[in-house]
Design a protein around this nucleic acid. Structure first.
Lengths: 184, 184
DNA sequence: CCCATGCGTTCGATATGGCGAACATTAGAT
DNA sequence: ATCTAATGTTCGCCATATCGAACGCATGGG
């Protein structure tokens, strides 16, 4: 469950962002071209704003529309190379450790990848709209969509659609990478 | 400008996602507990939905609320280790290459970091709500908030608030890392 | 002191978003 | 061929989100 009334989230974001901008409610309402009464109600969690209203406000506050719908903030966390907490490994010669899941319904997972030479790892398509970003840390590998993989060297970066079959095949021993799986 | 009437974006997303789910307009409306007339109007770009309505639909479609406000999709891209396109380097012994900027107003940038031993690199706070994720690729480094840095080894992962002063100090030569800067 | 100017809240009037029924359309079954 | 059961669209009514004005409360200037 993600629920958590979006109206409350919006209300909180509204106050927070307005405070951040150092603007008065009156001023924001004026800039947004809406009645300050409306804004007042929204900030107090009452009401059920229309998209137009929210849009006007987000413009007035000079923030991204979606920023009004995203909650708060996190902390500090360390995961050592060996002690993968959430392990997600597959084939014998391929291991992916989830180091940072997208909280709570964010849109990006961060994996540490370790692969040894072998048949290579083929991934079935993920969620539509997924993009994978890979930076090769050490070794050498063939990475990318099945039909057009790219030979990667340490430091190289590649991004490709994750919603089509794709490959990660180590060409030498001790091949490691960082993978960011980003959903639309 | 990012503008681009959100109503059109929503309309498009609505049709797209419903198609993806293989559901009928009637079915989605039923699940969402809204009138199908309402949904019909929204999909045709008419109307100005309230947050409650959108929320109900996003639940019915089993997608993220914000997914209704985000446009389309990307492609395949490779950046070699040397040929950093957008270079963002600072001190002599610290270089950060932006390999994947958040498009168009997404919320995460991907950097490749190369540091040599020296005084260390201190970053002033970024945007409030920023989180930085680092996976050390090679070498050894002291990373984290100024007041509690952590000694990192290859493969180690750390996340910390990016909106407070923080440090990246290489302890040995040939220290490289991948950094994901994620804004709220 | 008192009035002016800013703030954010509350309240009635009105514009409009959402609902449900009726609608046109197509597909399948009898 | 007609009848049934889906689809998505259009329309009038009602609930309500938004507006504008009035309000209470702080400051600060005359």
């Amino acid at each position: 469950m993600d629920s958590k009334a979006p109206l409350d989230v919006i209300a909180a974001s509204l106050r927070r962002e307005r405070g951040r901008a150092g603007l008065s409610l009156t001023e924001v309402a004026k800039r947004a071209g809406i009645a300050k009464s409306t804004l007042s109600q929204l900030e107090s969690g009452a009401g059920n704003p229309s998209v137009e209203t929210l849009w006007a406000i987000s413009v007035a506050l000079e923030i991204q529309f979606a920023d009004l719908l995203e909650p708060p903030r996190p902390k500090v966390q360390v995961i050592r190379a060996n002690e993968g907490p959430a392990i997600y490994s597959e084939r014998a010669n391929y291991s992916a450790t989830l180091v940072a899941a997208s909280p709570p319904h964010a849109r990006r997972d961060l994996y540490r990848i370790v692969v040894t030479p072998g048949p290579g790892h083929e991934s079935r398509p993920h969620m539509p709209g997924t993009i994978e970003h890979v930076v090769l840390s050490t070794g050498r590998a063939l990475i990318g969509p099945l039909d057009e993989p790219v030979e990667m060297y340490p430091g190289d970066y590649i991004a490709y659609p994750g919603d089509v079959p794709h490959l990660f095949k180590a060409l030498v021993a001790n091949t490691t990478a960082v993978l960011v799986s980003e959903t639309s």
